[in-house]
Design a protein around this nucleic acid. Sequence first.
DNA 1: AAATTAGGTTACGCGAC
DNA 2: GTCGCCAAACCTAATTT
Length: 324
Amino acid sequence: MTVTNRSPHQRTRHKTARSDPEETVETVDEDDVDPNEVVRTADGELIHEPTGLILEDDQIDRGPEWRAFTQSERDSKSRVGAPTTQTMHDKGLTTTIGWQNTDAGGRSLPSEKRNKMRRLRTWQERIRTKDAGERNLQFALSEIDRMASALGIPRPTREVASVIYRQALSEDLIRGRSIEGISTAVLYVACRQEDIPRSLKEVTNVSRVEHKEIARTYRYISQKLELEMQPVDPKQYVPRFCSELDVSEAVQIKAKEIIDVSAEQGLLSGKSPTGFAAAAIYSASLLCDEKQTQSAVGDVAQVTTVTIRNRYQEQIEAMELHES
DNA sequence: AAATTAGGTTACGCGAC
DNA sequence: GTCGCCAAACCTAATTT
């Protein structure tokens, strides 16, 4: 066996040094090498540690075969780039087999060949639709993941979302609807079921689909999959909104109390949970002497100051009633 | 900043067609 | 299935306090 021999400091040099014409080559007997001193480097070379002998070169160069010195040069020489668009599910990359039983020249085929072509068509169709479904799912899941990240939604909830999506897929509820729409709606459902509430508006902000369609799709799938959704408890929004507003713990506790008391008196029915929570926080900030402006609270809760006003007066009243 | 007011949009349930 | 209608909640925008 022949190996190339180089000094250790040369080994650490860049790969291009290896093609140095002045490098010395000599033969070494294999028995001289102690296996315990042999290491494999990140480059894939097998090296005898004490002497720096290279026992085995990496046979495959995984790097690019070109060199570039500037970013623009790298861009222009690189042959990999952004993935092809996912929105067109197969981007014309699949094979379709024509229905005619003729060859390329237009002559009709003998019956034996016709049967073969029929079988091929069948299989091609099976394969194509199967992996179109897979791709569909893959895209949906990556979309769910993207939105979930943007909203700071924890893993388990994303898992729930993907389970629901698979259900919708198997019930054939996707047909005729956009994948993005379903993905968004499913994520929204998962949040509510897991008590990690995000308002429909918040979800809409990170989605590529408009509010109206998400709402419609949401109703559709929750009905079809018979998911019984109970109304969101406004208290669930309180900690998140409060931390965004940077108010004290006392306000948070007070806000929850206000929600409990006023809900007990039937003020909640029919009102939006975010608006209700926002008003409670505003009221609490007044009662705790840590006043926040209506518009500040409205911003984090994504409701208007008008809505806060309409709610908080009733709530204050309810509190006074409660205390007497 | 908060309150008031006016006008428009949306979603929902219901019955009629 | 969808059309028309309804009442309630919410929004935007303008104006006043």
